[in-house]
Design a binder for these strands. Sequence first.
DNA 1: GCCGTTTTCGGCCCGACTGTTTTCAGTCG
Length: 559
Amino acid sequence: MNKKISNILKEISDYLELKGENVFKVRAYRDASRIIENLDFEIKNLEDLKNLKGIPKIGKSIIGRVEEILKEGESLYLNELKKEYPIELEELLSIPGLGIKKIRLFYENLNIKNIEDLKDALYSGALYHLPRIGEKLIEKIKRGVEFREKNRGLPFPALFDVIGELTKRFKDHHLSYYITGELRRKKEFVKNLDFVFYDIRDLDVLSDIINIENIDESLYYKKISYTFENLSGSIYIPSSGLLWNVLFFTTGSKSHVMEVIDKYKKTNISFWKERFKREKDIYEKIEIDVIPPIFREGFGEFKWYNPAFVISKKDILGEFHVHSTWSDGRSEIEEILYEAANRGYEYIGISDHSASLTIAHGLSIEDVEKKGREIEELRDKNPIVYPLFGAEVDIRADGSLDYPDEVLKSFDYVIAAIHTNFGLSIEENTRRIISAFRNPYVIAFAHPTGRELGIRPGYEFDREEVFKEAARNNILLEINGTPRRMDLDSYEIYKLRSLGLKYILSSDAHYVSSLSNIENSLVIANKAGLEREEVVNTYKLKDVFLLFNTIREGKIRNE
DNA sequence: GCCGTTTTCGGCCCGACTGTTTTCAGTCG
């Protein structure tokens, strides 16, 4: 329920801003939304409301709104706001270049309420007549709309709520199902929510639950294409006795399935004539290793998959990319250490933002020193988890780093990252990143592509150049597990395997509750077939220090 | 809307960049 409440509060804040309400009121809702999203307890019923009391920035009014959501299942307040402004605000806001002000301008002048209206206006030229709207902006919005159209879906960790909602309705109607397709494979970005139904008695109820768009029938299954809450997918109903064939077939990926079916052809067994009792029989029948769904991406898994190499949660001994209250994190270092101990970590790196990222309270040089002392003091207390003194330092447009070398030197490690000047050319960004890699104190490169799934593709740079340079300097690439990022992507990592790079898995947590994001990174690492040796989070602390020293010394020698 | 007070109002988070302008509004992190 927290996610739902948080989404509603975020929406309220956006509609209030659209209305031109007091900016601090808007911010209050936005803050409350973020806080509730990151609570470490669930708000399920009215009883839980008392746990909200006393949480900073959650006051009487907000609790009242939450109470209403719990009682009504929706926010009447938000509904009122939406009635006043019948705009699909969240959808429009997801287009880069569009903010609340422009959306209001478009709505008031051209009655643009959603992406469809916006598309009409973009291509009819109607937008040109509005004040402060020029060619470049229109092109940017066009690109954003097209990107969005092509990338409709959600990162798999962001789908739990909608899947929960959908499957609850299936269960209420006694519909039995298996999740299949991209979601079963935990693909980073899921475009289709696919299910296999079995043991079906009554399908007529389906139209109460989802929007049925199309029904196809083949020899082996019936396929119902549907939409639900802005997402689309398919429901497969296997022909008699073909449940496991269909589940395997629809799980994909296409190339994985084809490879298996080819092997069947070669052994003269007809895949579709078999009546399997379990999915693993499909593999065992032709004497190959059973491959679990997340590995079935067609990245050569038949060659490299080995259950002994799969990295598990307990192999993770720590991580390096966590924000504390020193910058824009909401948890104190001590709290983070406590939570890290609960996760069974040996160490955890607190890497706050650097000075120029003022919105994220990037640390001034004086604050860096103070934070360093705090970490020293915590170490003196001999905590279960060893705190590492890190930093996520901005790479400026010219490739220089946001702190001078004397400061960079004081950290246990430095992660370089791009947060600004996204619009530079490929050449400029490539030069910029490479020059950061050559700094002797830079150990890792955070969220390497800068993508936001379904929102923007990330900045442009010469992938080959940059990753080769990373290999030359032993720069560790991050696999960022923040759902909206999931950056790097498993396919990209798979393609890079010949370079011999090493990786760090990161939660990029701003709240202790999001430390679990690292499990998303772990899925990506496993999908790409990485082994423990390639994932620094599996190293013991002394080996981490050893590795970091080697990286730094390697670069200093080459200077 | 929240918070804290030398306590019920007044303060609360900024700065670069872009694209539009010709001095600045809006977006973004």
